[in-house]
Design a protein around this nucleic acid. Structure first.
Length: 569
RNA sequence: UGGGGCGUGGCCAAGUGGUAAGGCACGGGAUUUUGGUUCCCGCAUGCGCAGGUUCGAAUCCUGCCGCCCCAGCCA
C-alpha cells in the first residue's frame, strides 16, 4: 500500500503545472525544488500535513529536492520547542529533508544587504510614521492610501537611518523600512509594505545579533529565491501577496543576482479542513488551555502529535491526502475518508486480539471446573504468514454486555435466552439461564456448550449466524482502554457563527474503560503497535500513556458496524 | 462601495469544445467462524443561475447570484 501511494498518479493542478514547466524547460538545468516553511510557533496539524506531503512528494516524484526551512523572522513568537516538535512530526510523516535544514535567519545578513541595495535603487525608504499613522495612511479597502511624508527621503538619508536602525539607535516601533511601490494600489499589500521593523528582542538562533527583523513578505520570497526553490507552494490566502512576492524576487534578481539561485514562483492551493474538528491555531490553543483536552498531543486533537498518539499511521495520513487531492476551492474533507484509510491499512496488517470492553460473566455449566483448553486462532485472517496464537478457554468467560439481549428483535443474531451463538475460535453455546441482581440487572449468563462444535472440527452440522468474542476470566490480562470519538458533535464546528465553538464539543469524546479483560497475548504486545480488538475496532498501544504494568490502548477507530445501522431503524 | 480567489452528486475531485473519471459516504445483493473484510449492482439527462456563440459547451463569450480572503511594525 505504501508502494501504491508512491507510484499513484498525481492529478492535481500543481503536478500538471510542474510537468509542463519541465516539458517547456522553464527550470533550465535546475531540478524541481520545493520546501516546507513553517513558523516555529506552534504544533503542526493535519492541515499542515497537506503542505508537507505535497511539497515533499512533488519533489520526490520529479526527482528533485525538498528543503525544511523555518520561517523564523519574528523572535517574539518563536521557540526552539516548536522547532523540535515540527522536525519530529516531519520525520514521522516521512518527509525527509536530508541535509537541507535551513532557517530563514541563516540569511539575515544577505537580506540586509538586499535591503541596502533596494534603498540605493530608490525602491525602499525609512518611514518614521508610527503604527497607527501607517494604518491611517494605508487607506481602506475602498479608498486609496496616501503617501508617507518620509517617502521621498534621499538615498543617503535612508541609508544612514537604516544602518542606525540596525545598530540599535532607535527604540522599537519608532521607524520601519518600507518598499516604495504604490499607495493607490487596489491590492493593499502593494501600498508601500513594511520590510523591516525594529525589535529589540533575542532570537532563538541569532541571539542579540539583530534588533531589526525582516517581515514575511520581504523575507520569504528572498529566502526561496536564495535557496533556489523552483516552486513555492503556499495556501490560498497568500494569493494577494503574489504581486509583492514577484516584486521582491524581480528586484533581487536585478539588484543582487549573486545571492539568487532561481527566480522562484509562488503557487497557491486551498488549505485542508476536516469535519468534526477545528483547525485554527487559536481554537486549538483554547482547547488545550481551557482543558477541554489534556494536551497538544491529546489523541482527540487534529495535531500530528495527537493523531500519532491516537494511533494513526503516517501511511494512512499520506493515503488520505492523496485521495482528497488538492485544488484551489475551499474544502472540508470527510473524517470518514481518513477512517477508511486507516481501516484499510490495518485490515491486512494489524494482528487480532480479543478484549471485552463492557464485560458480563458467562458460565459454561457443562464445562468441567478448572479445565483449560488452548484454542488456536489466526493472527490475521487470510494471511497465513502472520501465524496463529493460542488462547485459553475455560468454564467462566467474559463476553460483551451488548452481545446479549433478553428480549431481542428478530434481526439480532447474538446471544439470547434459548439461542445459540458461536464463541469465536471455540464452541457453539446455548443460553439457558439469565441471572439477575435484586435490581433486575443481568449479572451472569449460564450456558451449555456443544462438544461436537469445536472450531475447525465441527461435526455437528449446526449453523449459527452469530459469532462473538470472549475472554477467559482466570486468564485475563487487565488493561486500560480509551474509547475516542469525534471531538465535536457537529460536522463543521468552525462554521457556527452564533455560538462559541466550545458549545459544540462532544461530551462523549472520551470514554475510559479502566479495567478491560483481554486475552493474555496482550501482555506481549510492543508499545506503539496496533491491533484489532476483534469486532470492536483498531487500537494503539499508547507508549506515552502507559505507566508501569497497566497497559493503555487507544481506540484509533471502531470497525464499521452495520448492526448499529439496523438497530437505528 | 476597492482588490483577489472559488463555485462539478452528501464530502472531496478529474475534466481545458466532442457529448460527466475515480474515491469516500449512502442504498441493495452475494460470500463470511469478526453484523469486519471481500465481491457484484445502484447512485449528476447534469457541471451556481440566465442568456449567447457552435453541428456540438462543465469547458468559449456576456450578465447575474453565492461563498471565501485582504486594511499586523504576524506568518
Amino acid at each position: 500500500m505504501a508502494k501504491e501511494t508512491e507510484t499513484a498518479v498525481m492529478t492535481n493542478f500543481i503536478y500538471n503545472m510542474i510537468k509542463e514547466d519541465l516539458e517547456k524547460g522553464v527550470l533550465g538545468d535546475k531540478c524541481v525544488h520545493t520546501r516546507f516553511p513553517p513558523e516555529p510557533n506552534g504544533y503542526l496539524h493535519i492541515g499542515h500535513a497537506r503542505a508537507v506531503l505535497l511539497n515533499y512528494r512533488l519533489a520526490k516524484i520529479f526527482g528533485g529536492k525538498f528543503n525544511l526551512r523555518f520561517d523564523d523572522t519574528n523572535p517574539i513568537k518563536e521557540e526552539q520547542e516548536f522547532v523540535d516538535s515540527i522536525m519530529e512530526d516531519l520525520r514521522w510523516l516521512g518527509a525527509d529533508w536530508q541535509e537541507r535544514l535551513f532557517f530563514s535567519s541563516d540569511y539575515f545578513e544577505a537580506k540586509y544587504e538586499f535591503a541596502l541595495r533596494l534603498i540605493k535603487a530608490g525602491k525602499a525608504y525609512v518611514c518614521d510614521l508610527d503604527q497607527e499613522q501607517i494604518r491611517e495612511y494605508r487607506g481602506t479597502l475602498t479608498e486609496p492610501g496616501k503617501e508617507s511624508p518620509y517617502r521621498n527621503r534621499s538615498v543617503e538619508e535612508n541609508l544612514d537611518l537604516f544602518k542606525r536602525m540596525r545598530s540599535g539607535e532607535f527604540p522599537d516601533g519608532s521607524r520601519v523600512l518600507r518598499a516604495r511601490i504604490d499607495m493607490a494600489a487596489g491590492n493593499l499589500n502593494m501600498r508601500d509594505p513594511v520590510l523591516y521593523r525594529i525589535l529589540h528582542s533575542a532570537h532563538h538562533r541569532t541571539g542579540d545579533k539583530w534588533c531589526i527583523y525582516p517581515m514575511y513578505d520581504f523575507d520569504h520570497p528572498f529566502s526561496d529565491a536564495h535557496e533556489g526553490i523552483t516552486h513555492s507552494l503556499c495556501s490560498i490566502e497568500y494569493t494577494d501577496h503574489r504581486p509583492l512576492y514577484d516584486w521582491i524576487v524581480d528586484n533581487a534578481v536585478a539588484l543582487y543576482p549573486e545571492a539568487i539561485a532561481f527566480r522562484s514562483r509562488q503557487t497557491e492551493f486551498a488549505r485542508l479542513n476536516l469535519t468534526y474538528t477545528v483547525m485554527s491555531k487559536r481554537k486549538l490553543r483554547r482547547l488545550v488551555e481551557e482543558k477541554y483536552v489534556e494536551s497538544w498531543d491529546d489523541p482527540r486533537m487534529p495535531t500530528i502529535a495527537g493523531m500519532r498518539r491516537r494511533g494513526f499511521s503516517p501511511t494512512s495520513i499520506a493515503d488520505f491526502q492523496e485521495r482528497v487531492g488538492v485544488s484551489r476551492a475551499d474544502s472540508t474533507a470527510d473524517l470518514a475518508l481518513l477512517e477508511h484509510c486507516i481501516r484499510e491499512e490495518l485490515e491486512t496488517s494489524a494482528p487480532r486480539l480479543m478484549a471485552v470492553l463492557d464485560p458480563i460473566k458467562l458460565v459454561i455449566t457443562n464445562w468441567p471446573e478448572g479445565n483449560t483448553e488452548m484454542t488456536e486462532m489466526e493472527n490475521i485472517p487470510g494471511d497465513e504468514s502472520a501465524g496463529t496464537r493460542k488462547v485459553p478457554f475455560s468454564r467462566t468467560l467474559y463476553i460483551e454486555r451488548d452481545d446479549f439481549m433478553e428480549d431481542p428483535p428478530k434481526k439480532f443474531f447474538r446471544l439470547a435466552p434459548g439461542r445459540e451463538v458461536r464463541l469465536k475460535g471455540a464452541y457453539i453455546i446455548q443460553c439457558e439461564e439469565v441471572i439477575k441482581d435484586s435490581e433486575g440487572n443481568v449479572v451472569e449468563l449460564r450456558c451449555s456448550y456443544d462438544p461436537q462444535t469445536k472450531s475447525g472440527a465441527d461435526t455437528s452440522g449446526k449453523k449459527v449466524k452469530g459469532v462473538i468474542h470472549w475472554v477467559s476470566v482466570v486468564h485475563a490480562a487487565w488493561i486500560k482502554v480509551n474509547l475516542y470519538d469525534n471531538l465535536f458533535s457537529i460536522e463543521n464546528p468552525e462554521e457556527e457563527k452564533d455560538v462559541d465553538f466550545t458549545d459544540n464539543i462532544n461530551p462523549r469524546s472520551l470514554l475510559v474503560c479502566e479495567n478491560v479483560p483481554s486475552e493474555p497475548a496482550v501482555a506481549a504486545a510492543d508499545p506503539g503497535s496496533r491491533f484489532q480488538f476483534l469486532r470492536k475496532g483498531y487500537f494503539y498501544y499508547d507508549p506515552v500513556a502507559t505507566k508501569d504494568d497497566k497497559l493503555v490502548f487507544n481506540r484509533i477507530v471502531p470497525l464499521k458496524d452495520s448492526w448499529a445501522k439496523i438497530k437505528k431503524k
